[in-house]
């Protein structure tokens, strides 16, 4: 469960979020809005990468201001640019890197890495340099490196923005099969079409909140 209680965020002299209040128990929640509407900040609040200037954010029953490190262990975060989150030079090593601090035996790490790569269609690339992958494969690798830790919640900040249609569909397909709660900030409206709930942000406020059909309809009118 994710909860925002009268959250204000002020960054660089600008009010990025203004009084956001919402409880998000749904399994799939989408967030849309124009550039600069505060969507990415809202996503970053969920795992404590950003903190509220006032108000509070609770995730998995914990306040992000006091328990950011603990919350991050339960909240995976996928960024727009996979190059910024792939840390190790080869594909398998990057997935294994996520498991480093779990204190697992080497054989167990290898087993989990193998399973994760197979699940994301990357088994044939295990020893390949990460920078040789296509954009879509890099994003799948980034997702794989996050999901190998089996987080309770996955937050994504525009995960398909840099991808072509085929790779966007591939990522969407993978997301559909995830059992975790997913919060996706995106301009990719088809990605959110089968979500349980969509929030529309405008100038730091939630201006629409409902089913994808209603909320995206509102967003389309707003942007017309």
């Amino acid at each position: 469960m994710i909860g925002f209680a009268d959250v204000h965020v002020r960054l660089g002299g600008r009010d990025v979020l203004r009084g956001v209040t919402a409880r998000l128990p749904e399994r799939r929640v989408g967030v849309v809005g124009a550039n600069g509407s505060g969507k990415s900040t809202l996503a970053r609040l969920i795992n404590g990468l950003a903190l509220p200037t006032s108000g509070s954010v609770t995730v998995l029953g914990l306040d992000t201001r006091r328990h950011a490190a603990k919350i991050r262990r339960g909240v995976g975060f996928l960024f727009t640019d996979p190059d910024a989150q792939i840390v190790m030079p080869t594909v398998a090593e990057d997935v294994a890197f996520s498991l480093r601090r779990k204190g697992l035996e080497r054989e167990e790490v290898a087993r989990r890495v193998h399973e994760a790569l197979a699940a994301y269609g990357l088994a044939g690339h295990a020893d390949h340099p990460a920078h040789h992958l296509s954009g879509g494969q890099k994003q799948l690798l980034a997702l794989c490196s996050v999901m190998v830790l089996q987080p309770d919640i996955l937050v994504m900040d525009e995960p398909t923005t840099l991808l072509d249609l085929r790779h966007s569909r591939q990522v969407a397909e993978v997301l559909r099969g995830l059992p975790q709660q997913v919060v996706a900030v995106s301009h990719d409206l088809p990605l959110l079409a089968d979500f349980d709930r969509v929030l529309v942000l405008d100038q730091g406020r939630i201006v629409a909140d409902g089913s994808p059909e209603e909320a995206i309809g509102h967003y389309r009118k707003m942007m017309a």
């Binding site: 989150q85 840390v87 601090r101």
Partner: peptide
């Protein structure tokens, strides 16, 4: 900057 944020997100600032 983005890499630093990604490392934090992967729990490396504990």
């Amino acid at each position: 900057d983005a890499l630093g944020e990604a490392l934090s997100a992967r729990g490396l600032d504990d």
